[in-house]
Nucleic acid binder design. Structure first.
Lengths: 177, 177
DNA sequence: AACAATAAATACCAACTAGTACGAAAATGT
DNA sequence: ACATTTTCGTACTAGTTGGTATTTATTGTT
């Protein structure tokens, strides 16, 4: 039910959602309270579905380059398309989000950034990353680049081209290794 | 009149635009025909205002690194905020654009990509860029990274941090030089 | 000064939005 | 088997959207 979101994020109305779900409008409102509540639930669903595997990947003990490759394959594979872009879309359209959704998006984003930071620090400790790059900058950089990948995929970019660009960008992190 | 656009792009309605402009609604429709026409005119205005200087910068005869630095300063300076993000916003929200606007956005985007490509080829010829990177990939890469910078600025990112990330990304192009 | 022609704005349209009041139906307790 | 409560959907707000028909004001001409 929650998964019917990913056709667009802000491009779909409550009426349309209820129609597609086959549920009555008051039913949806009884279940989720408001549009904000529905979005919040959708983000939570997205978190467990998509962010979970991603965090696992980031926490795995393999070399930086290998994790990166798997990561890029994971977020650029066509099957990721439906829900893969939700967080990226929501983060690039703040202001029109309800308070619940905004808070949850922030929470997920911070969780991700923490995972990026420990990932990069581990790479540093192993000598797999350029020591001239501050972990803070690297964290934001990883976040930005991965978000960009998701947005490009959401806009229908070619997986190969998107991946090639991302690999090029990430090569900046491992240059001095 | 056209400049009243930049508070948001898809976040503002015709009613609101007319109200802010102090013009009557039929007046605006007589002038621009439709919402699509107004958007088209806004993009054209944006092209001459913002893209012009940018193309000049790209075509200048200075070293790659210097052009890049000026470019980043230009698109991350606070004064660029109002209109600076228009193209990036429109490109990340296709599908809800009218045919005129869509065509014009495509046209401007292609114009930019051509400029990026000749810029990179010149850098290659001068030995300022990594010869292992295909001009096609580099073109898309530059396009993607600059769009990302504009989007980050539109979302209120810190200019220093945004610039630092961009410099890190672009360092991948000049690595083998 | 009276009248025709044109410009522009008020007031409207149908279709949509998020959200709900209320009656009907179904499940429940006795 | 009946009464009560609880679930559930039709039908409805109130407001906004892009877009326009009609009326009002302004102008030029005689």
């Amino acid at each position: 039910m929650t998964s019917y979101w990913c056709d667009g994020v802000r491009n779909v109305s409550m009426n349309e959602i209820c129609r597609r779900a086959g549920a009555s409008k008051p039913g949806v409102y009884r279940e989720f309270g408001s549009e904000d509540g529905l979005m919040d639930a959708a983000v939570e669903h997205y978190r467990t579905t998509m962010i979970g595997p991603l965090l696992e990947l980031l926490a795995s003990d393999q070399p930086f380059a290998e994790v990166l490759e798997r990561l890029l394959l994971f977020i650029t594979e066509p099957s990721s398309k439906p829900a893969g872009c939700l967080l990226a879309e929501l983060r690039s359209a703040p202001g029109r989000l309800g308070p619940l959704t905004a808070a949850r998006v922030d929470s997920v984003a911070e969780e991700l950034r923490n995972a990026y930071e420990t990932w990069f620090r581990r790479a540093l400790a192993r000598g797999e990353a350029d020591t001239m790059i501050s972990p803070d900058l690297a964290t934001h950089f990883i976040d930005t680049q991965l978000t960009t990948v998701l947005l490009q995929m959401a806009l229908g970019g070619e997986p190969h081209l998107v991946r090639a660009q991302a690999e090029l960008a990430f090569s900046a992190l491992t240059r001095g290794a």
